[in-house]
Nucleic acid binder design. Sequence first.
DNA 1: CTAAAGATGTCCT
DNA 2: GGACATCTTTAGA
Length: 197
Amino acid sequence: MCTHSDPLPRRFYERDTVSVARELLGKVIVRHLRGSLLKGIIVEVEAYRGGDDPASHAYRGLTKRNQVMFGEPGHAYIYFTYGMHYCLNVTTEKLGQPAAVLIRAAQPLTGIDRMKKWRKTDRLENLTNGPAKLTQALSIKRALNGHDLTKKGKLYISRPTNPETFSVVITSRIGIKTGRNKPWRFFIQNSPFVSKQ
DNA sequence: CTAAAGATGTCCT
DNA sequence: GGACATCTTTAGA
């Protein structure tokens, strides 16, 4: 039994990272939190690879922080940065090959009141339009690092029930100092929920 | 051990 | 456009 709202399967993630990143646009991120349900449509992502990508956390090899990137595809890689922010990635490529896709922004769909509470703001466009804003709105913290996204648990990604067509804009990645030449940032054209146009 | 930078967000000018 | 909050991770001595 497999319906459209089930988590994306392992084989979706076990592929070329840039392709996975592009295809994650329009998918739905689902967060079960103490009885409440939070959902959002992914509108902005960035691909980070391994040894050939100087901007990747995995560029210099395996460390305690990035070990999830080296593991099985379809897991959450969550890291803490700037002393206060969490960022959510999904791991890709086959076991042993480090890579991940950074989820940078989403369009709030379900549980908006709860997101407003976590974010301490009422403005819809300001809830999930950035990687750290997204994790704050969905209450995603270090405890979910390594979480399996292919099972119906606290966090997973599924296909939308009512898919809408959209155009994809491709740019270089932002917020990094190296690897800026790679066109590995993707976002949904004209979405008001993208972090930066 | 020490130090510097960081896949950011917010507030200020 | 720029300062700053705040702390983990990593690299280098």
